[in-house]
């Protein structure tokens, strides 16, 4: 449900960009969600459709999920995040603040929590298309 808060952020930022680029009507907004955060796509989509202002009335929201790659800063190992190895509470904690992944996930090769979230962390505004 806190997807609403993220949707509000997407709409607010999109409006700012549309204004800056002089778009009278926005036709398409592309949002990327990193698999790590486990954002519920249907809720996000619903929230975006409810929150859209008139300038966005014909806009198509494209939402795609990006896989999460983690890279160990100690041994250099790179791996793909998979929530199936974690319990429900942990997945939920990471859902609210993805950085707590560093509390629960260790490098599968050397055991270090010192890894970088190379890609697929959370929500990201990819592109906005529209007509001037």
């Amino acid at each position: 449900m806190h997807e609403w808060a993220l949707a509000e952020a997407v709409i607010k930022t999109s409006i700012e960009i549309a204004e800056k680029e002089g778009l009278a009507q926005v036709t398409e907004v592309t949002v990327k969600i990193g698999n790590l955060q486990q954002v519920e796509r249907p809720i996000l989509r619903f929230a975006l459709s409810q929150l859209r202002p008139s300038r966005f009335k014909d806009a198509k929201f494209r939402i795609f999920t990006a896989k999460t790659t983690l890279k160990c800063r100690v041994c250099g190992n790179t791996w793909v995040f998979n929530k199936n190895s974690l319990d429900k509470e942990t997945v939920e904690a990471i859902h609210f603040v993805p950085e707590v992944a560093h509390t629960y996930i260790k490098c599968p090769k050397c055991g270090s929590p010192d890894f970088e979230i190379e890609q697929g962390r959370g929500i990201w505004l990819e592109t906005i298309k529209g007509v001037k």
């Binding site: 609210f96 603040v97 993805p98 707590v100 509390t103 929590p113 010192d114």
Partner: peptide
């Protein structure tokens, strides 16, 4: 507080990661 999510375990975060966690909490 972040302890709601990190519990009794350490949250070993680097600078950019603490910023990201702060932005997330302030935003939601």
């Amino acid at each position: 507080s972040l302890v709601y999510y990190s519990g009794n375990e350490a949250a070993p975060l680097r600078g950019a990661e603490t910023s990201n966690a702060l932005i997330e909490l302030l935003a939601v």
